[in-house]
Write a protein that binds this DNA or RNA. Structure first.
Lengths: 209, 209
DNA sequence: TCATTTTTGTACCGTATCGCAATAAATTCG
DNA sequence: CGAATTTATTGCGATACGGTACAAAAATGA
């Protein structure tokens, strides 16, 4: 499926690595705080090349975050759905999430969406819609996993799927927030484990066989 | 305790209203997206006056948010601690919180801290420290309230105070995130009520008399 | 070899930005 | 009234910003 460069001067950049470098820059500096010059330096692409390849700054961010979502989707869904035990699945999922949120040489960089574009959501409707959609996707994924666990009788049939899923989403939002504020990884992992246990207890896990 | 203006030309602005207008502008545009010109227009103070009164942009934000924290502390603590029933206290607290987060003509403006400076926390260490401290204060307030409820036997003596407080903080973080993404107020209120109920259930409220 | 195609590099434009200097206006004290 | 003091206003200067025009460079095809 690789596009074979047919003609013309070959491009010196690789799209995936460029978008990865761009996202890292956004995570470091924030959305508005990242200029096209910063992106140009980080990706080693000249500004016109950036523009030709992806479009304006917002398009660069959206492409970069879309690649992040796509690349991490497999790991996320794997952690959530390949593990039969709900408790183990959630533990694995959130530990992987904390690992991502804790990336960063100096301090944790947080979530590539929640920690980066929250400030812009009110000023830029496109960004706001993107953020809203991302929240909805996370909710839906948790709902699906909870429904599976309920169908497998790991949770009572009366389980309020929406409420439990919203608590799991809240944990994710909170971990992103705390990571961005500088909370260290072991503390995030502790919070994740404790919270998952508490949520499962509230959901009635292990109550009715 | 009012400073009586002793000499010189009297100032035309009121500090509190100016800081309130500045905070509103920060919430609308985000931290980096708000320029001194925006603040100047919003507060009806000339840029040099802003500079003389508060200092640079970061100082303006910190002063504005400090005033917000101070002004809302009374209502917050009142909702939390004046109500004897833990369930009623938490419901009241989070409904008041949702009311604040839902402010805004066009769309909800979210939290004056969580929704505004999260993106800058990695780039500006002072902002990062401020955010970290704010998270710690919220945690501590919830811990205190849970401890009171446990001492009054509204919760079992074995209650894990830290874990429950962290879940309540997570709910707060999540409501801020969802509000900023555009979730409407009734939905936020529904989530708040359901989550409080679930957390109390997990904490064992009403289990042991 | 030479035209064609695609990417790269340089330079530029209009605007916005922060921070401040210099001056004008409004008030109190003597 | 005049001196002193505090605030308000105007304007400047240097930089950074997003976005683009244009020509040079590097490849392919005939």
């Amino acid at each position: 499926m690789k596009e074979k460069s047919a003609r013309g001067r070959p491009r010196q950049y690789d799209t995936k690595t460029a978008l990865g470098a761009a996202l890292l820059e956004f995570r470091r500096r924030g959305y508005t705080g990242t200029s096209l010059d910063h992106l140009s330096e980080a990706t080693k692409m000249a500004r016109p090349s950036l523009y030709a390849a992806f479009g304006n700054k917002r398009a660069i961010y959206l492409r970069a975050v879309a690649q992040y979502v796509e690349d991490s989707a497999e790991r996320r869904d794997g952690a959530l759905f390949d593990e039969p035990s709900l408790a183990a699945a959630l533990d694995g999922y959130f530990l992987a999430l904390v690992a991502i949120y804790s990336e960063g040489d100096d301090r944790p960089l947080g979530c590539p969406m929640l920690s980066v574009i929250t400030g812009e959501a009110t000023a830029d409707p496109v960004i706001g819609a993107e953020l809203f959609a991302a929240l909805g996707r996370t909710d839906a994924r948790f709902r699906d996993r909870i429904a599976v666990a309920r169908d497998e009788a790991q949770l009572p049939p009366t389980t309020d799927i929406d409420a439990v899923a919203e608590m799991l989403s809240a944990l994710q939002h909170s971990l992103a927030q705390r990571a961005r504020a500088g909370t260290a990884r072991p503390e995030l992992e502790r919070i994740a484990r404790n919270s998952v246990a508490l949520i499962l207890k509230a959901a009635g896990a292990g109550t009715a066989p």
